[in-house]
Write a protein that binds this DNA or RNA. Structure first.
Lengths: 197, 197
DNA sequence: CACTTTACGATGCGAGTGCATTGTAATCGC
DNA sequence: GCGATTACAATGCACTCGCATCGTAAAGTG
């Protein structure tokens, strides 16, 4: 079996091209030919590595998810639950070009998950994970006396997540500036956390 | 000029068909032929009333917006700012089949607004209006002593809106039940309003 | 050196797309 | 009633799409 090439590396290369197109022109503009052109390869090669377009899409989305997940994981050594939550949320918001790009794709994927099963499954799997992390941090803060004990950590985590998701579009279309987005997040955290000190 | 037909009624009829398709299969599945078939008319007729597909899409979105706006307006005679806000927000969330349908389309439109100019313009125009309404209600509640005076009504309004938008997808893919969605909204309103009583 | 498997590149196909064009009833002002 | 305009219906066109097929060069294994 000839295996001169790195299979996974090729797949990532193609998926990267796909993500670039999706970011620029939306998920609708993603076609086998466009992806091949963007990746600088032939269309036959794209087909060689992905049996169907949907598989290619899902692979790219999982890769994007992983990329964001890694960045959030980097923020996990934050000095306090509040700092971690702040960092984790801001990581998802379109505050610079890279995150703008990711947020565009994420939003398109979110919309797609409403009519297609596979993206919906992926989201249904990822959501408890993300929101659960938030809830854990809030509970940790409660034990540290930094969040009122009578608040519901689970629901606060949901609100945190939904607020972040809801901020994406207004930020992307320019209704909220990056500064306003950050200010909104900080305002909300101020209301959630006790201003100790 | 022969005018045996009601021009606007025909346009609404076609737009309704478009919205049904968009709700069932997503915005991508909307084509001139599909819309014509769904509306029970010829493709030539669709073209007669809409010069381009984009115009048809925008018309349908504006119509959807107006439909939701009317329902929210009905809720405006609520007895208190809190009751109004609650009603206005729940009106946007996918709690029954009709609103599920609307939320699906709205989400697709939201994603489209990130890569297309016209939808983005529409949203940029509508957002200050909606959020402004929320802010007004919160300020009214502050004057009534139902919301702490030191809270920022403008930011609270943004958070209210973003939370609602962020709830749409988790609700649509079934990660949150309608009951959990309502509970989350009520929880947030509980935190925003003073439990005077 | 065969023989198989991998890794493509090239091409083609049927379906579907938005839109333009054409034809034709019907209905108005005159 | 006659020309002009409206309201469609039907068809065609150029294009794009995902995917299948075919051919082939390279690299391993025996």
């Amino acid at each position: 079996m000839p295996k001169i090439v790195d299979h996974e590396a090729r797949r990532r290369h193609i998926a990267d091209a796909l993500l670039r197109i999706a970011s620029r022109e939306g998920l609708d503009a993603v076609s086998l030919r466009e992806v091949a052109a963007e990746a600088g390869v032939s269309m036959g090669m794209v087909q060689h590595y992905f049996a169907t377009k949907d598989q290619m899409l899902m692979f790219a989305m999982i890769q994007l998810n992983a990329r964001i997940g890694e960045r959030v994981a980097t923020a996990m050594d934050a000095p306090s639950p509040r700092a971690f939550l702040r960092a984790a949320i801001l990581e998802l918001l379109p505050l610079d070009d890279e995150r703008r790009s990711e947020a565009r794709i994420g939003l398109a994927f979110l919309a797609r998950s409403v009519v297609a099963d596979e993206p919906a499954d992926l989201l249904r799997q990822a959501l408890p994970y993300v929101i659960g992390f938030y809830a854990e941090q809030i509970r940790a803060a409660q034990e540290l006396g930094q969040v009122r004990a009578d608040l519901d950590a689970g629901i606060e985590a949901v609100i945190l997540y939904t607020m972040a998701q809801g901020l994406v579009n207004p930020a992307l279309i320019g209704h909220l500036s990056p500064e306003e987005v950050v200010a909104t997040v900080d305002y909300h955290l101020d209301r959630l956390f006790l201003t100790s000190g």
